[in-house]
Design a binder for these strands. Structure first.
Lengths: 187, 187
DNA sequence: ACATAAAAATAGATATATCTATCTATTTTA
DNA sequence: TAAAATAGATAGATATATCTATTTTTATGT
């Protein structure tokens, strides 16, 4: 009853694992084909260049991010809960990736903004998160004297900073601090 | 009256520029010696390996960071001002580096936490910033119902997230949003 | 100020390894 | 029988690092 994983998926699965864990620049084609146990010709059949593989990897991460967040929000109804889930989701991501951090942030550190297509995907990914959060914060009943849009932006930035810093420290404290703080602010 | 820059400094200056702009992994020894206009033997005389050069680069960044912040605080007296200067300093850094982001955060994205000595330096750098901010927030007269230590931590994380995201978007908005937000919170 | 010895810097070849990518020829799968 | 995947050689570029031999700089003693 074992499902045979197609070659293209084996490549992308291994590349995903390695790009996340080791980084893009420190992952060679040879390691990918070895660990995926496929021929180098097969790789270049599916992905004409290493850069195309990177694009496919990021596209998958993009899709999985929003699917994953939606799924983790199943059962929540209030905006307040969904905001807290936003932090919880990042905590879960960091746990399951062993503190790899955000793949989009990581790739910009690795290759800069030279590759226009990648720069575009990263910016778009972050932008979509901001829009999502702005929507949630707009639903909040009372935020005291705090502008909701400004609060949404800074909550996003806290989580971003906390994600980076949990990756550095390899413990979850920073993200937990954000959770505690925002809970106070919106409760 | 032209000061002759010593070989070791020429190497470190060029390496600094290239590691910041292009990244560590995307900067080769050959490019460094070419742009520094020195012989390869001289480089390996001063720095036994590329990793030693990286350590020297980070150590310099560490020293310059706190010197730079101190200098930018000259003339300010209140903790409130110094907290706002903290954001201004990061804005200035991003401007003058053309949005290179934090070198410590960047190197972790590039090489991970494998190199213990580097991991150590990065963690220590962030830790020192937290301590500095905790001290400043302790001095604040009134933060309403907000715990000062928690506020300091989350301010730090906001700035971290904003730094990363100004590097991604290549504009200063995120850092300006943090400034506006914290000003409201502590004013 | 000048000669000289030690240290530093140079050019440039080279070793060794790795990287991405291409190609051919053969086998497996659909 | 066509398409997909394989093994494996190889091209061509680039990486870090070492080595030799020579020149330049610096420091020291007279």
């Amino acid at each position: 009853m074992k499902e045979k994983v197609k070659v293209r998926d084996r490549i992308l699965n291994v590349a995903t694992e390695l790009f996340s864990r080791q980084g893009f620049n420190q992952t060679g084609i040879n390691q990918i084909i070895a660990e995926a146990d496929i021929a180098i010709g097969s790789l270049y059949n599916h992905f004409p260049s290493k850069n195309d593989l990177l694009l496919a990897y990021l596209q998958r991460k993009e899709d999985e991010w929003f699917e994953g967040y939606e799924r983790s929000c199943k059962g929540t109804s209030s905006a307040k809960e969904k905001i807290l889930k936003f932090v919880d989701f990042r905590i879960a991501q960091q746990k399951q990736s062993d503190f790899c951090g955000c793949p989009f942030t990581k790739i910009i550190s690795e290759i800069g903004s030279q590759e226009a297509q990648i720069q575009q995907m990263v910016e778009s990914h972050k932008s979509k998160q901001r829009v999502l959060l702005q929507g949630l914060f707009r639903e909040l009943k009372d935020t005291g004297e705090l502008d909701r849009k400004l609060l949404a932006e800074n909550f996003f930035l806290m989580v971003e900073g906390a994600t980076v810093n949990t990756t550095i420290s390899r413990n979850m404290q920073a993200l937990e601090h954000v959770r505690k703080f925002i809970k106070k602010l919106i409760d």
